[in-house]
Amino acid sequence: MAKLVQFDRIGGPEVLTLRDVEVGAPGAGELRIRVDAIGLNRAEVMFREGGYFYEPTFPSSLGYEAAGVVEAIGEGVDGFAEGDPVGVVPAFLQTDYGTYGDHVIVPATAVVARPADIDPVQAAGVWMAYITAYGALAEGGQVRPGDHVLITAASSSVGLAAIQMANHIGAIPIATTRGAGKKQALLDAGAAHVIVTDDEDLPSRIKELTKGEGVRLAFDPVAGPGVETIAQGIAPGGFLVVYGALDPRPTPLPNAQSFPALSTSTYTLHELTTDAERLRRAVAFVNAGLSSGSFEPVIDRTFDLADIVEAHRYMESNVQVGKIVITVAHEDGTV
Rank of each mutant, 00 (worst) to 15 (best):
K3A: 05
L4D: 01
Q6D: 13
R9K: 15
V15R: 12
V15N: 10
V23Q: 08
A28T: 15
G29H: 08
G29Y: 09
E30R: 14
R32H: 08
I33Y: 14
R34M: 05
D36R: 15
V45D: 12
M46F: 15
G50F: 06
Y52Q: 03
Y52P: 10
E55G: 10
P56V: 07
P56E: 01
F58N: 07
S60C: 06
L62I: 04
Y64N: 06
V70T: 13
E71W: 15
E71H: 14
G74W: 14
E75W: 11
G79A: 03
G83Y: 15
G83N: 08
L93D: 14
T95P: 00
D96K: 02
Y97I: 00
T99S: 14
T99L: 13
I105C: 11
V106A: 00
A110E: 04
V112I: 15
V112C: 14
P115N: 02
Q122V: 09
G125E: 12
M128Q: 06
T132C: 09
G135L: 06
A136L: 03
L137M: 05
V143M: 05
V143L: 07
R144N: 07
H148Q: 11
H148N: 06
S155V: 03
S157E: 02
V158T: 04
L160P: 08
L160S: 08
L160G: 07
L160K: 07
A162K: 05
N167C: 12
N167Y: 08
H168V: 06
I172E: 07
A175M: 12
T176E: 11
T176N: 09
R178I: 05
G179R: 15
G179M: 01
K182C: 01
G190V: 04
H193F: 14
V194E: 03
D198Y: 10
D199E: 13
E200Q: 09
D201V: 01
L209N: 06
T210Y: 07
T210R: 07
G212E: 10
G214E: 13
V215Y: 11
F219E: 06
F219H: 02
P221W: 09
P221L: 06
A231W: 07
G233V: 10
A235R: 08
A235G: 01
G238Y: 02
L240K: 00
L240Y: 13
G244K: 02
D247H: 12
P252S: 12
P252M: 09
P254A: 05
P254T: 11
N255V: 05
A256W: 10
S263I: 11
Y267M: 15
T268N: 14
L272C: 11
E277Q: 13
R278H: 09
A282P: 02
A282W: 10
V283A: 03
V283D: 01
A284V: 10
F285N: 09
V286Q: 00
A288C: 05
G289Q: 10
G293T: 14
D300T: 04
A306E: 15
D307S: 06
V309H: 04
E316P: 02
E316N: 07
Q320M: 10
V325A: 13
A329D: 11
A329R: 15
E331Y: 04
D332R: 12
